[in-house]
Structures are given as C-alpha cells and as structure tokens.
Nucleic acid binder design. Structure first.
Lengths: 246, 246
DNA sequence: AAGTGGTCTAGACCACTTG
DNA sequence: AAGTGGTCTAGACCACTTT
C-alpha cells in the first residue's frame, strides 16, 4: 500500500523511529508527555500497527520511550530511577545501590583543555562550564566528580540555577535545556589519588583510586558531557553487566 | 488456533524461547549448528511465523542465536569475535582493542575459599579448578587472571587439556563440557597491587591496579566461573558502555 | 464501557545466499 | 531456481487502566 518508495535509508520502521525521535528533539512532545495511541500513530505514519509497534519497541529498548499497558506510551524522563538504573554504577560491597547525596564544590565558566575539547568535539576557544561535585554515600564522601559541558548547549546556566535544581543533573539538562542524555561511554583505570580529590574526600593523597572518564551523549551519538569521577573504592565498587551488548 | 491453553508461565513466544534454549542445553543442536528454518520451527511449535520470529529475536538479542540472511539461524559459538565483543573489556588508551596473548602460569585442583564458594553457589568441600593466567597486550604482560570453576561441571579437565585448547577459554567450556557462558557480572575497584600479581606482571608491589571480580554464568543465571583480574592500567583501560541496560 | 498497550495469526513480498 | 531470513500488512483477541 506504500505509494512512494521513501525508503531513503533502511527500512520503514527505522524511518518511523527517526521521525519519532525528531518529534522529541524538536519538542513536539516533551519528557513525560504521552504519545498518541499506537493506532493513531500508525494512521499518521501510514504504516500498519505492527510496523508502528516495531518502531516503538526500538525506542523503548533505548529507554527513550516508556510503555505502560492500559495507560499509554510516554517520553522517557531523566528521573532518579532512570539515573540509578542506567548511569549510576557505584554500589556497596554487598551489592546494594543507594542514591548519592550531592554537594556542589565549584562552578565556573572557562575554556576546555585539549582532551576535553577533543572528546566533546569543540574548539579550545569555545566556552565550557566546569563543575566539581562531591557525592556522599551513607553519609561519607566517596566520589569526586569533575564535569565539563559546552556552554553553547546550556545557555544561561549559572551556579544558582545549577545548585537549585530539584532532581538529577541529567534531569536539569533535559527539562531546562532540552538536552536528553541517552547513553555514555566510560573508561576506567586505577591511579594514585591526586591531592585535589583526596582533600575533597577526606583522604590522604596517593591512595589507590578508581578514575572513571565518562563521555555522555544525546541522540545521534552527539557528545554533551565529559565527566571524570574519582572514586574511593575501599567500601564501594563499580558494577558492570556483560550481557548482550547493544 | 491454540487448542490447549499451555500458557503455564508467560506468553507463547516466551514458551517457545524456553523450548529453544532447552534444545540447546540438551545438545539437540550444538554450537555452530544451523536451526531448522523458521517456517519449519513455526510448524513444529504450532505457532505463527511471527511468533516464532519473536522468540528467535529474543535469543538473538542475548547472543544465544545468530541469524544470517539467506543462510539460516545458527547456535552462537564462543569464538574469538564473541569473546572480544562481549567479554574482553580492556582496551588501549587510544581505544583500540586487541586479542590478548594468554600464558598459563598455574593449574591446580583444590577447594574454594568462602567467597569463591558463596559466589559459585557450591560447598566449601566441593572441588574446584584454580587457574592462573597472564595476559599480554602488545607483547607486555598487563592482566593477571585467577580463575575458579567447579570441578563438577568440568569433569576430566586437566592442565594438558586446558593448555592445549585451540580457542578461547569460554570456547573450551562450551565445546568440551557443554557449558555456554551467556553473561557475566563484574565488580571493579582500585587497590595496591599484591606481590603475587606484581611479580607475574613484572611490576613492583603496591602500584595502583584495577581489580575486577567477574562472576560468569550460563543459562538461567547459573554461576559457572569466578574470576579475579588484576590489571595494570598505565597503558590500558577498562571500557564500558552505558546504553539501555538489559 | 471505552481506550490503551500486549499477544498472535496467516498470509504477502523483498533481500540475500547457495546450488 | 530454490531456500533462507527480513519487512510489512490487516486484522483478531487479551490484559490492563481509567472513567
């Protein structure tokens, strides 16, 4: 029943996926909003219900959409649950996860160094925001986060707005700047803890520490945030599941 | 057209998945074998082709089956490619992956300690094989692996057979003992390198090292292998992708 | 009762590989 | 040419939530 062979790239359900992502990126539907029903979307895209479902399946698998039987399909929100589920990998030795208590230590506007610029795909002369946080678990400081984000993507961000956010940092990105973090790539190594991190965590410099470099990105693998986490792993660990890679 | 409401647990396609896994576990089809065609399987299970495909989709997503258009569907093999793709997470600083050169250092039959027994779900009095390997990357020793596996699952394994394997360790598990590793859980922390690892890697004790504890499991999340890897991360890193968790 | 997503069917045609 | 998996259709009915 397809009149025009509009299969520019790939299959029909992939085209529907792209159009749905487009709608989200352009703000036609925002975080937490309900999508039209599946039958309605199928009519709009002129595809069968099965094809429409297949497209939605893909976005659900990527945590971009969330289905609720009997209620509808919703645009995924960067709330605490998703943050803990997808992005927070520091657990206690017994495997229990808890939400960290975040304390802002420094917020400034500056220029990226070479590594930061390369990872973020920006110029050395572009402005960035640099944020230092200390994350406490069970009342004790465990993680020192150093976050670098391009100022161009977060126009108007300042210390007050950042510190006064109600939810997670990624929720702030999404709700205030329309930037949705959909995935991240992390590189982990061991190092002797630097003085700067040690003093924030109440340790002496030189103790073994985990160093995690995270590059977080939005749709189409566009990098958005470069973050270095230094972790005291005497009582906590980084957990990773090796199942089917996506 | 379903006469008997055999939906004991969950939906029809999940039941088909379980039966396909059963066939693999019982050796009806072995690693690398081709499955019957989809239409044939649909007839055998008395489901529509769409439902059969949905079941196969799930097993393909878990790397248990592999589809090849025009050729057929095959039982996944634990070859080098899959090992590098799913289980080997140590990459050079520039992100390049290379296959490690493995040197056997020790092989012995003994008893597990408390932690090993608890993780593997076996008794302190059960026999295990303990294997020490040194993995070299670019000609230099980088990883010290200490592997513990229950002897009950690997009856007849010995040093000669282990050292004489042609492929990866997981390929040996699968081809010689019918044990397919389908996933793993890893916990990572930083520590001062112990003397035992340092001497194997040609380093001095006390340098910061990554310690990775891996619990690898087969179907139905049954634990099969407990492995501790100590990594010199001066030139290599552990990489992890935070996409949609499975 | 009405509306939503979840499962399932029985076909059709396309893309690819092999003999 | 024959056989395989890959895509797509146009329905049906079920399970769940809301009104």
């Amino acid at each position: 029943m397809r009149d025009t062979p509009r299969r520019s790239r790939g299959s029909l359900y992939q085209e529907v996926m792209r159009q749905l992502i487009d709608d989200i990126q352009r703000g036609v539907v925002g975080p937490g909003d309900a999508l039209p029903s599946e039958s309605e979307l199928a009519q709009r895209f002129k595809v069968s219900i099965g094809t429409l479902r297949r497209a939605v399946d893909g976005l659900v698998a990527d945590n971009i959409l969330v289905r609720q039987q009997g209620r509808g399909t919703f645009v995924g929100r960067q709330d605490r649950d998703r943050f803990m589920f997808q992005f927070f990998k520091i657990a206690a030795r017994d495997g229990t996860l808890q939400f960290p208590e975040v304390r802002l230590h420094a917020f400034q506007r500056s220029r990226p160094n070479e590594i930061q610029a390369r990872r973020l795909g920006i110029q050395l002369t572009d402005a960035v925001f640099c944020i230092d946080n200390v994350l406490a678990l069970g009342g004790r400081p465990v993680v020192h986060d150093h976050i670098v984000i391009p100022a161009a993507l977060f126009d108007g961000l300042n210390r007050i707005g950042f510190a006064g956010r109600t939810g997670t940092i990624y929720e702030l990105y999404q709700s205030d700047f329309g930037v949705t973090i959909v995935g991240a790539h992390e590189r982990i190594r061991a190092e002797s803890m630097a003085m700067s991190s040690a003093s924030l965590l109440g340790l002496r410099a030189g103790v073994p520490a985990l160093r995690i470099e995270r590059l977080a990105y939005t749709f189409n693998t566009v990098p958005v945030e470069f973050r270095v986490s230094v972790v005291d792993t005497r009582e906590f660990e980084y957990v990773s599941d090796l199942e089917a890679p996506v």
